[in-house]
Structure formats: structure tokens, C-alpha cells
């Protein structure tokens, strides 16, 4: 690749946990979570990562947002190298947002949902709305299918799916250019899921948002992704345009995944 890469570019990413440290107990071998991953996400592109549990999907995502320091490899966004989150320019910190797999634990338990969203604007005033912040919070909550009253509640008083939508709203509040979604819609029922998927698709079309979308739901991924990367044991075994992957999966593991996937076959046609 000779031209200047735009969007996200990941080259030969490697991450090992526990090597040399006492954490895993004496003699426990280190766990290789990511073993040489290459992946690009172009502006306004949606790339999905699917694959077995423990295959390293979340670890890749955490490297992209700078929460895990890779052993080796390079990450860049529009040509700017991506290091640990604290060393990143404020603009890059704002531009790359993540929705976590375990949303409750990523929300401050002492703050109300409204305060959590407003805090994001304090950290990045450039993205703050010009007018009434409380009204802007209500609009955001509505976009993710939540009643405005949720703004006054704390995470412990919200259901798992409600927390998940609060973290989506918080990420979108900063008008990111790349949104990393780790199982971001998996705890939502299908009608709310459809609402959020539409919102994300609209943002990619109208505002050039790109998505790195981690999900085990092969139905959702088929509806939203342009390309799909299949991960297994820290490696990407296959990357393909979405419909090509479903029509002619190349790797045996991809075929196994597709064969294992259920459909709602009981529905009458």
C-alpha cells in the first residue's frame, strides 16, 4: 500500500497478557490474545469483527482506543500514530470513541446518566452543544430510544440494555469519526436494536462516521457491515465483503460459524 492511509489502519498487532508477571501464578504461561492482526477501516466504512469468544476481538478494540498497550505492531488514524490514550492529541481522543461490552462497569456509578453525558462535553468542549445542554442530553437519549427521564437516574437504577444505550449516547455526544462498538447492541431487544442500527447507518452515510463493529450476531452484522473480519485465536482467518462472506465463506472456521447460526425458522411465511 503506497498511498497515505485514511481512516484506521492496524498493522501486525500483537498483544500478550501475563508474560513474566506473577499475576497468573508461578509458571503460568502468558496468554497471546492478539497474534498479528492487520485491519483497515476507511472513512464511512463499517467493518465487523466476528469470531469465537476469547479470540481477541475486545483486545484489538482496546488497543484502538488506547486502553491496552500492544507488544508490537502499529496503529494509526489518518496517518497519525495511535499510542496510549493519555498521550493522544485531544482531537484524536474525541474522534475515536468506544462502546464497551460490559457497559455498566464503564459508567461512573455515582453519576446520573445526564451527568455522564455532560461530563464528556466538559472533557471535550469543542464537541459541546452551543445551546441548552440538558435539552441536548434529552435529544441524544431519544435518539438511542430512551425516555428523557432516564437522565436523572444512576447506572445501578438502570437495566443492562439501558446502560448500554447510555454508553452509546455518551460516545455519540462527542460526534466521533470512528466508533468502536464492542457487542454494543447485543443486550437490546430487536426493536430497539433496529432503531440504533438505523441511527448508526444514518451517521455513517450522512456524517462519514466509520464503525469497527464487534458482534457475535451474524444477522445484525449482515445488515450493517460493508466488510467482515473473522477472528480466531488472536488471528484474522478471513476478511471479505459482507455478501461474499455469506455466499461463499472460504475458511472452514467461517463455514462452521455460519452453520452454527440459528434463524427464527418458526416464523410463517
Amino acid at each position: 500500500m503506497t498511498e497515505h492511509p485514511t481512516g484506521l489502519s492496524i498493522r501486525d498487532l500483537r498483544v500478550t497478557f501475563g508474560g513474566g508477571r506473577r499475576l497468573l501464578g508461578a509458571g503460568a504461561p502468558p496468554v497471546t490474545a492478539v497474534a498479528g492482526v492487520d485491519l483497515d477501516v476507511a472513512p464511512d466504512e463499517t467493518v465487523a469483527v466476528v469470531g469465537e469468544s476469547g479470540s481477541g476481538k475486545t483486545t484489538v478494540a482496546r488497543c484502538v482506543v488506547g486502553l491496552v498497550r500492544p507488544d508490537s505492531g502499529t496503529l494509526s488514524y489518518d496517518g497519525t500514530p495511535l499510542g496510549p490514550v493519555r498521550g493522544r492529541p485531544a482531537e484524536i481522543q474525541r474522534a475515536i470513541q468506544m462502546v464497551f461490552q460490559d457497559p455498566r462497569s464503564s459508567l461512573n456509578p455515582r453519576m446520573t446518566a445526564g451527568a455522564i453525558i455532560r461530563e464528556a462535553w466538559q472533557a471535550h468542549p469543542a464537541a459541546a452543544p452551543a445551546g441548552d445542554q440538558h435539552a441536548a442530553v434529552r435529544d441524544l437519549l431519544e435518539e438511542v430510544g430512551l425516555d428523557g427521564g432516564v437522565a436523572r437516574r444512576r447506572p445501578a437504577e438502570l437495566s443492562g440494555g439501558q446502560c448500554q444505550r447510555i454508553s452509546i449516547a455518551r460516545a455519540l455526544a462527542l460526534r466521533p469519526r470512528l466508533l468502536v462498538c464492542d457487542e454494543a447492541v447485543s443486550a437490546l431487544d430487536v426493536s430497539v436494536q433496529a432503531q440504533i442500527l438505523r441511527l448508526l447507518v444514518d451517521l455513517t452515510r450522512e456524517h462519514g462516521l466509520s464503525l469497527l463493529f464487534i458482534s457475535h450476531d451474524l444477522g445484525v452484522v449482515r445488515q450493517i457491515a460493508d466488510r467482515i473480519a473473522v477472528m480466531r485465536s488472536g488471528e484474522i482467518v478471513e476478511t471479505a465483503a459482507t455478501e461474499d462472506l455469506y455466499r461463499s465463506p472460504q475458511h472452514p472456521y467461517t463455514r462452521m460459524l455460519l452453520d452454527a447460526a440459528l434463524d427464527l425458522e418458526v416464523a410463517e411465511t
Binding site: 430510544g145 430487536v190 426493536s191 430497539v192 433496529a194 432503531q195 442500527l197 438505523r198 447507518v201 450476531d217 451474524l218 444477522g219 445484525v220 449482515r222 445488515q223 450493517i224 455478501e243 455469506y246 455460519l258 447460526a261 440459528l262 434463524d263 427464527l264 416464523a267
Partner: peptide, 13 residues
């Protein structure tokens, strides 16, 4: 419910 084995559009919420 999004289908896996056929291509479907995102449902109208």
C-alpha cells in the same frame, strides 16, 4: 429479527 441466512434490511423501528 435480522436473518442470518438471507439478506434482510434493518427493520422499521
Amino acid at each position: 429479527v435480522p436473518a442470518v441466512h438471507t439478506k434482510t434490511a434493518i427493520a422499521a423501528p
